[in-house]
Structures are given as structure tokens and as C-alpha cells.
């Protein structure tokens, strides 16, 4: 009968969707451990968030109000205290940018193994997690030894629990030691995106690192012109400074939902896919038949983009 502690995520006054997914993942674990599901809500509009997250399967919600926004020291101190009090077997956190900023510290602090970016798990004779490796080209299953673990789950891999429940809400006095808070958020800023907005585009031609050189980009821009489509790119192309940031598709760029998305020389890393997977029709052009983009593509051409794209341009000129 071991308990599970899940941790909600919010930003700038809004709960993030992954919070409801954590409830589902947490509940899956309590189904196997037979214990209670605790949910920690740290900072922000804790009472409102607690109302929203009083969901089916959640037994107790622990709220700590020590500021508006995420702060990793406040999270670490609170979760260490809750861990000591509740003695859960598993702590479940989101594999998000903020999750990456406290989950590993928590694992180190309470001396638990950390299983990051998990896409599935089973818990019988101990915990077995499924995760990707080599940019999604293979999946692995891993037995995690020890008396428990901090498990960080990949967003959107679990469905969101939406059915209301009857969780007990407890405000926790975490006794935060402000002297040990060594980082201060001074503000937020929108990344400079320029005045291009690709998020409403209905037809997108997107290019990735398969293009190799900056001077080759003309080829894809010519294709976008010939097709009258919007030109976009994966992150490395933007990181290189070849294309303006407003054209980046993905987790840290834009989310797009076109009728047709053509991914050219893009491997399909999870952070890219997060920005385009709800496109109606996905077409991939890639030399690697095992590229993860083919796992979500509706249509594909396994061939060299430098051969296919000129042919395609010719068709439309």
C-alpha cells in the first residue's frame, strides 16, 4: 500500500494541460500500489487550481502558496518536505522545461532514482519504464531498481483526467527557508518571433537539417513558392540563424494545424512533433526509412530531398 505524489504545473495564472495527464499517470500507479494519490500544487492561484484538479482518483491535494510563479527552490523544499511526511513510493512530475528544472534536483535530494521522459510504464514486481532513445529511432524498456523513483512523464502521452472527484484539500505550511532560495524570477518575455505568423497557415512546407547547407534553402523556398505554401523549419535551421525564429515549428516555436504539412529532411523529434502532429495530413520526405517522422506521417517518400524536390517544383511550374 504505497502512495504516489504527483506535481501540478502552471504558468502565468493558468494550469497547464499536463497537470490532468499527471493525475491519469499517477492513478495508474496507485492502481498497482494500492495506495493513495496525492497531488501537490505549489504557488499560483492554488485554491482555484485545487478546485480544477479535484479529479477522479485524487485523494489529497496539498497546496503551498509561496509566490505566483514556479521557483525551483520553493518546489524542491516543498516536495522534499512532502516526501518525508507522506513517504510515497513514486513521485510523478512532468517532463517539461520546468519539470527539468526541479525533478532531477529532487531525486538527488531524497536519493531516489530518476526515470526521465517516460512514455509508458508498468508496475508489478517493481517499476519498468518505456522510453525513447536515439531521437526516437528505438524504444527501450528499463527496470528501475530501488524503493521508489521520481518519474517524469512526457506530455500528451497520457490522456487528461477530466471527471471531477472529491479530493481533500490541505494547505501546507512548508516553512520555506527563503535564505535557501537562490534564484529569482524577474519576469517573462516573449521570444523575438518577428512579424511572421505561421500558426494559421493551411498548407506548410517545412525543412529540417537534411538540407545541410544554408545555400540549399532556396530549393525549399522555391517549392513553397511554386505550391503557394507557407515556408517553415525545424529548430536547428533556426538555431543556425538561417531562418527567422517566427518560422520555427515545435515545442519552443509555433504550433501549427494546417490541412497539409510536408516535412522535408526532418527526423520527427518529439519537440518538433509537438508543434505539428495535429495537422490533417502529414507528408514526410526523408532518406531514412526509420526516421520517427514516418511514425506519424500519413504519406511518405523515402528518398533524397535533393532529387524529389526539384521534380516536384517542375510539376507545379
Amino acid at each position: 500500500m504505497s502512495d504516489v505524489l504527483a506535481v501540478a504545473e502552471h504558468r502565468q495564472g493558468e494550469l497547464r494541460d499536463v497537470s490532468g495527464e499527471l493525475v491519469t499517470a499517477g492513478q495508474e500507479l496507485t492502481d498497482s500500489t494500492g495506495g493513495a494519490l496525492h497531488l501537490a500544487i505549489i504557488n499560483g492561484a492554488v485554491e482555484e487550481f485545487a478546485d480544477d484538479l479535484s479529479l477522479d482518483g485524487v485523494d489529497t491535494i496539498h497546496t503551498v502558496d509561496h509566490g505566483e510563479e514556479f521557483n525551483h527552490d520553493v518546489y524542491l523544499q516543498t516536495l522534499t518536505q512532502l516526501y518525508d511526511e507522506l513517504d510515497p513510493e513514486y513521485v510523478v512530475t512532468p517532463h517539461t522545461v520546468n519539470g527539468m528544472d526541479y525533478a532531477p534536483a529532487l531525486a538527488a535530494e531524497v536519493d531516489l532514482p530518476l526515470a526521465p521522459d517516460v512514455i509508458d510504464f508498468t508496475n508489478g514486481d517493481g517499476l519498468t519504464v518505456t522510453r525513447e532513445q536515439y531521437g526516437g529511432k528505438v524504444e527501450t524498456t528499463i527496470d528501475v531498481a530501488g524503493d521508489g523513483a521520481v518519474v517524469t512523464v512526457r506530455p500528451t502521452e497520457w490522456s487528461r483526467t477530466e471527471t471531477a472527484g472529491e479530493a481533500t484539500v490541505e494547505a501546507v505550511d512548508a516553512g520555506i527557508d527563503d535564505g535557501a532560495v537562490g534564484s529569482t524570477v524577474t519576469g517573462f518575455e516573449a521570444a523575438a518571433m518577428g512579424d511572421i505568423d505561421i500558426s494559421e497557415a493551411e498548407f506548410i512546407v517545412s525543412v529540417g537539417r537534411g538540407i545541410e547547407e544554408e545555400e540549399n534553402l532556396d530549393l525549399i523556398e522555391d517549392l513553397a513558392d511554386a505550391l503557394d505554401a507557407t515556408f517553415a523549419a525545424s529548430r536547428p535551421i533556426v538555431d543556425n540563424g538561417w531562418v527567422e525564429p517566427g518560422r520555427q515549428v515545435g515545442q519552443s516555436g509555433k504550433v501549427v494545424t494546417p490541412d497539409v504539412y510536408i516535412a522535408i529532411g526532418i527526423s520527427g523529434a518529439v519537440q518538433h512533433v509537438a508543434g505539428m502532429k495535429t495537422s490533417d495530413t502529414i507528408v514526410a520526405i526523408n532518406t531514412d526509412p526509420d526516421a520517427p517522422i514516418f511514425d506519424i506521417a500519413d504519406y511518405g517518400i523515402v528518398d533524397d530531398l535533393f532529387d524529389v524536390v526539384p521534380q516536384l517544383i517542375e510539376q507545379f511550374e
Binding site: V138, I142, D143, G146, P292, F294, D298, I301, Q311
Partner: peptide, 28 residues
């Protein structure tokens, strides 16, 4: 704490229709 118990190629989430043939046929 980790013991690798299996490593495999993931199953595709979608049915991908591949356009095959020579480059011109693919583009067609």
C-alpha cells in the same frame, strides 16, 4: 538503478502510405 530489458524499433502510430517508384513517379 537502470537495467535495460529490451530495445526495439517502435511501432508506427499511423498507416503511412509510401509513394514509390523512381523520383518522377514519387513526385507525381
Amino acid at each position: 538503478a537502470f537495467e535495460l530489458t529490451s530495445l526495439y524499433e517502435p511501432e508506427s502510430e499511423t498507416e503511412t502510405t509510401l509513394f514509390e517508384g523512381d523520383t518522377e513517379e514519387e513526385a507525381d
